[in-house]
Amino acid sequence: MKSGSSGGWDRRLILPFVLFVITSIYLATALQITAQFDEGLVGPSFVPVVASILMYIALAFVVLGMRNDTDKAAREKLNLAAPLKVVVATAVYILAFKPLGYPVSTFLYVYALLYIFGLEDTGPLKRIAYTAAITAVFYALFALIFQVRLPLFDTEFWGMF
């Protein structure tokens, strides 16, 4: 455990622990389901309860299996800075998608992604050109070819301010 631990805590245990918590919330909710009519043992909560119990057992096997796990890559410390930046950029993009509209929000999102992915050997002008091209190509694909109504600019939203 020492090689993969950080402060005495093996980081591989985090995911099983999170799944354990999710399963516990799920099981507690499943036990509160009230059936509209009696189906006997196998009502609406039967499969969720069985799935929860099986999940606990499977998680126990996963944790026990870690003792024999020789995969060093799984123990290495993971640098989450770049994925976190992508997640934040994506979340902001989703929130801004309707208020700002497709052209502006997508342009900013693609520019951010090109930056995060480290588009090398390119100056800001070339990066803007790439960004504009990607935004335009997919606007053409969705809005013109597949006739999808993409949001342009939510005037009602901005009118509130």
């Binding site: 998608f97 693609v110 090109l114 992915f117 997919f138 597949f146 993409l150």
Partner: peptide, 24 residues
């Protein structure tokens, strides 16, 4: 270029998700 490729994939994936119900 990976940056260009995965930016394109991200736009297709997210705008594609929007297409089904027109909901973010």
């Amino acid at each position: 270029r990976k940056a260009v490729l995965y930016s394109c994939i991200a736009v297709v994936a997210l705008v594609g998700s929007y297409v089904a119900t027109y909901s973010p």
